[in-house]
Simulated scan of single mutants.
Amino acid sequence: MAATPLHRHAKVVRMVVSTYQAASGAGTAVMEEPMQQTHEFALNLFSHNAAVFSNGYNEEEMKLVKETRKFWNDMDVKVTATCIRVPVMHAHAENVNLQIEKPLYEDTARRILEGAAGVVVVDDRESNHFPTPLDVSNKNDVAVGRIRQDLSQDGNLGLDIFVC
Protein backbone atom coordinates (compact mmCIF):
# COMPACT_ATOMS: atom_id res chain seq x y z
CA MET A 1 0.00 0.00 0.00
CA ALA A 2 2.88 2.37 0.64
CA ALA A 3 4.88 1.59 -2.50
CA THR A 4 1.92 1.67 -4.90
CA PRO A 5 1.23 5.44 -4.82
CA LEU A 6 4.95 6.06 -5.35
CA HIS A 7 4.97 3.58 -8.24
CA ARG A 8 2.04 5.39 -9.85
CA HIS A 9 3.90 8.70 -9.61
CA ALA A 10 7.45 7.73 -10.58
CA LYS A 11 7.32 4.09 -11.84
CA VAL A 12 9.28 1.66 -9.72
CA VAL A 13 11.66 -0.39 -11.85
CA ARG A 14 13.19 -2.38 -8.97
CA MET A 15 12.11 -3.05 -5.40
CA VAL A 16 14.15 -4.71 -2.66
CA VAL A 17 12.05 -5.70 0.35
CA SER A 18 13.10 -7.09 3.71
CA THR A 19 10.13 -8.12 5.82
CA TYR A 20 10.07 -8.53 9.57
CA GLN A 21 7.00 -10.66 10.20
CA ALA A 22 5.28 -11.13 13.54
CA ALA A 23 5.04 -14.40 15.44
CA SER A 24 1.27 -14.40 14.92
CA GLY A 25 1.87 -15.13 11.25
CA ALA A 26 3.67 -18.34 12.18
CA GLY A 27 0.44 -19.86 13.50
CA THR A 28 -1.43 -20.34 16.72
CA ALA A 29 1.14 -22.66 18.29
CA VAL A 30 3.62 -19.81 18.55
CA MET A 31 0.94 -17.53 20.00
CA GLU A 32 -0.42 -20.08 22.49
CA GLU A 33 2.93 -21.21 23.88
CA PRO A 34 4.90 -17.99 24.34
CA MET A 35 6.44 -18.97 27.67
CA GLN A 36 7.70 -22.31 26.36
CA GLN A 37 9.14 -20.71 23.25
CA THR A 38 10.55 -17.56 24.81
CA HIS A 39 14.12 -18.83 24.85
CA GLU A 40 13.89 -19.79 21.15
CA PHE A 41 11.78 -16.98 19.78
CA ALA A 42 11.93 -13.87 21.95
CA LEU A 43 15.70 -13.64 21.73
CA ASN A 44 16.05 -14.63 18.11
CA LEU A 45 15.16 -13.99 14.47
CA PHE A 46 14.63 -16.73 11.96
CA SER A 47 13.88 -17.22 8.29
CA HIS A 48 10.22 -17.29 7.39
CA ASN A 49 8.79 -20.73 8.03
CA ALA A 50 7.52 -21.20 4.46
CA ALA A 51 8.85 -23.91 2.16
CA VAL A 52 12.14 -23.03 0.43
CA PHE A 53 12.29 -23.54 -3.33
CA SER A 54 15.28 -24.71 -5.38
CA ASN A 55 16.04 -21.07 -6.32
CA GLY A 56 16.71 -20.32 -2.62
CA TYR A 57 13.63 -18.15 -2.16
CA ASN A 58 10.88 -19.30 0.15
CA GLU A 59 7.19 -19.40 -0.70
CA GLU A 60 6.45 -16.11 1.12
CA GLU A 61 9.22 -14.28 -0.76
CA MET A 62 8.04 -15.54 -4.15
CA LYS A 63 4.47 -14.63 -3.22
CA LEU A 64 5.60 -11.06 -2.58
CA VAL A 65 7.32 -10.95 -5.99
CA LYS A 66 4.33 -12.37 -7.87
CA GLU A 67 1.67 -10.35 -6.05
CA THR A 68 3.52 -7.06 -6.57
CA ARG A 69 3.79 -7.68 -10.31
CA LYS A 70 0.14 -8.74 -10.50
CA PHE A 71 -1.18 -5.85 -8.40
CA TRP A 72 0.80 -3.28 -10.39
CA ASN A 73 0.02 -5.05 -13.68
CA ASP A 74 3.73 -4.81 -14.44
CA MET A 75 5.51 -8.09 -15.15
CA ASP A 76 8.77 -6.22 -15.86
CA VAL A 77 9.24 -4.71 -12.40
CA LYS A 78 12.17 -6.37 -10.65
CA VAL A 79 11.37 -7.48 -7.12
CA THR A 80 13.46 -9.33 -4.58
CA ALA A 81 12.50 -10.11 -1.02
CA THR A 82 13.83 -11.60 2.18
CA CYS A 83 11.19 -12.58 4.75
CA ILE A 84 12.19 -12.96 8.40
CA ARG A 85 10.16 -13.84 11.51
CA VAL A 86 10.78 -11.51 14.45
CA PRO A 87 9.85 -11.61 18.15
CA VAL A 88 6.78 -9.37 18.04
CA MET A 89 3.27 -10.67 18.56
CA HIS A 90 1.29 -8.67 15.97
CA ALA A 91 1.88 -6.70 12.78
CA HIS A 92 4.57 -7.03 10.17
CA ALA A 93 7.19 -4.48 9.15
CA GLU A 94 9.10 -3.98 5.92
CA ASN A 95 12.10 -2.06 4.80
CA VAL A 96 11.48 -1.15 1.16
CA ASN A 97 14.15 0.13 -1.20
CA LEU A 98 12.84 1.50 -4.48
CA GLN A 99 14.69 2.21 -7.69
CA ILE A 100 12.51 4.50 -9.77
CA GLU A 101 12.36 5.53 -13.40
CA LYS A 102 12.21 9.30 -12.88
CA PRO A 103 13.52 11.47 -10.03
CA LEU A 104 11.43 11.50 -6.88
CA TYR A 105 12.45 13.69 -3.97
CA GLU A 106 11.67 12.61 -0.42
CA ASP A 107 9.46 15.67 0.22
CA THR A 108 7.34 14.80 -2.81
CA ALA A 109 7.21 11.16 -1.73
CA ARG A 110 6.07 12.24 1.74
CA ARG A 111 3.25 14.37 0.26
CA ILE A 112 2.16 11.49 -2.00
CA LEU A 113 2.06 9.10 0.96
CA GLU A 114 0.22 11.60 3.18
CA GLY A 115 -2.50 11.77 0.52
CA ALA A 116 -2.74 8.01 -0.05
CA ALA A 117 -5.83 6.17 1.17
CA GLY A 118 -5.11 3.71 3.97
CA VAL A 119 -1.65 5.14 4.64
CA VAL A 120 -0.52 7.13 7.69
CA VAL A 121 2.86 8.85 7.68
CA VAL A 122 4.82 8.55 10.95
CA ASP A 123 8.12 10.21 10.13
CA ASP A 124 9.50 12.43 12.91
CA ARG A 125 13.28 12.57 12.56
CA GLU A 126 13.75 15.07 15.40
CA SER A 127 12.27 12.78 18.02
CA ASN A 128 13.33 9.58 16.22
CA HIS A 129 9.70 8.46 16.03
CA PHE A 130 8.82 6.08 13.21
CA PRO A 131 6.30 3.23 12.70
CA THR A 132 6.48 0.23 15.00
CA PRO A 133 4.47 -2.99 14.98
CA LEU A 134 3.18 -2.18 18.47
CA ASP A 135 1.78 1.17 17.29
CA VAL A 136 -0.11 -0.36 14.36
CA SER A 137 -1.44 -3.50 16.06
CA ASN A 138 -5.21 -3.83 15.62
CA LYS A 139 -5.32 -0.93 13.13
CA ASN A 140 -6.16 -1.11 9.44
CA ASP A 141 -3.99 1.70 8.09
CA VAL A 142 -0.44 1.10 6.95
CA ALA A 143 2.10 3.31 8.73
CA VAL A 144 5.12 4.50 6.77
CA GLY A 145 8.20 6.40 7.88
CA ARG A 146 11.98 6.64 7.48
CA ILE A 147 11.20 8.25 4.10
CA ARG A 148 14.58 9.11 2.66
CA GLN A 149 16.64 9.27 -0.52
CA ASP A 150 18.70 6.19 -1.28
CA LEU A 151 22.20 7.66 -1.27
CA SER A 152 23.54 4.72 -3.29
CA GLN A 153 21.51 5.76 -6.35
CA ASP A 154 22.37 8.86 -8.36
CA GLY A 155 19.90 11.42 -9.64
CA ASN A 156 17.26 10.97 -6.91
CA LEU A 157 16.26 7.69 -8.53
CA GLY A 158 16.10 5.79 -5.27
CA LEU A 159 14.03 5.93 -2.13
CA ASP A 160 13.90 4.01 1.14
CA ILE A 161 10.79 3.66 3.29
CA PHE A 162 9.91 1.67 6.40
CA VAL A 163 6.39 0.25 6.62
CA CYS A 164 4.34 -1.36 9.39
Rank of each mutant, 00 (worst) to 15 (best):
K66N: 13
E59G: 02
H129W: 03
N97P: 05
V96D: 01
A3L: 05
V77Q: 06
Q36A: 13
H90L: 15
I112V: 13
V17Y: 00
K66D: 12
C83Q: 08
T28Q: 06
F41W: 11
F162N: 03
V77Y: 00
C83R: 08
D123S: 05
R146N: 04
N140H: 08
N97R: 15
H48L: 07
D160E: 10
L43Q: 09
V121H: 01
A81W: 05
P131I: 01
A23C: 15
L43A: 08
V52A: 04
E60T: 13
T28S: 09
A29E: 08
N140V: 11
D150C: 10
R110C: 06
D160W: 12
R8V: 01
D150K: 03
P34N: 05
V96Y: 01
Q149N: 11
A29H: 07
A42G: 10
N128T: 06
I112Q: 03
T80K: 11
A93Q: 12
G27M: 07
H7T: 05
V136G: 01
I84M: 15
Q37N: 10
R125L: 14
V65A: 05
K11Q: 05
G25T: 09
V77W: 04
V77S: 00
N128D: 09
A109V: 15
G155P: 04
G115L: 08
P5S: 09
V120L: 04
D124P: 14
L104G: 03
A51C: 01
N73W: 05
N58C: 15
Q37H: 12
N97D: 10
R14C: 01
E60L: 14
A91L: 10
K66L: 13
Q36D: 09
N138R: 12
H48D: 14
R69Y: 05
P87N: 07
K78L: 10
N128V: 08
N128Q: 07
H129Q: 07
R111S: 12
M62V: 12
I112P: 00
A117Q: 13
P133V: 11
S47M: 08
T19N: 12
R148T: 13
C83N: 14
L98P: 11
I147G: 03
S152E: 07
T68A: 12
E32H: 07
K11N: 05
D154W: 05
V30D: 04
A81N: 12
V142Q: 00
D141I: 04
A109T: 15
P34C: 08
D74G: 05
K139L: 14
H9E: 14
D160G: 03
R110I: 03
A23I: 14
A117P: 08
A23K: 03
A26G: 01
I147F: 10
V119A: 03
E67H: 08
W72E: 10
A143L: 10
E106M: 14
